[in-house]
Amino acid sequence: MKLTVSGNVKEYAGGLTVRKLLELEQVETPEYVTVSVNDEFIPTGDFDTAALSDGDSVEFLYFMGGGR
């Protein structure tokens, strides 16, 4: 299936959950990453169950603490 991940369209195997995608994309500290799928936030507790389907658009939003 095709997913748009962080703006890039890529081919993935079917049956993917948000958790699995975070692993595949080697996202650091996934427990502190906000995930949105098709313009909706996925609660952290739902990462294991949230299934992705063909055509979904996924964004990872990261904490960024610096500033001074």
Partner: peptide, 20 residues
């Protein structure tokens, strides 16, 4: 709305530790 609450200290780096 995006980030519910601060991450625990040291869980994600700040610029003092990580550089910028």
């Amino acid at each position: 709305c995006v980030f519910k609450e601060p991450p625990p200290p040291e869980a994600v780096p700040t610029c003092r530790q990580a550089g910028v």
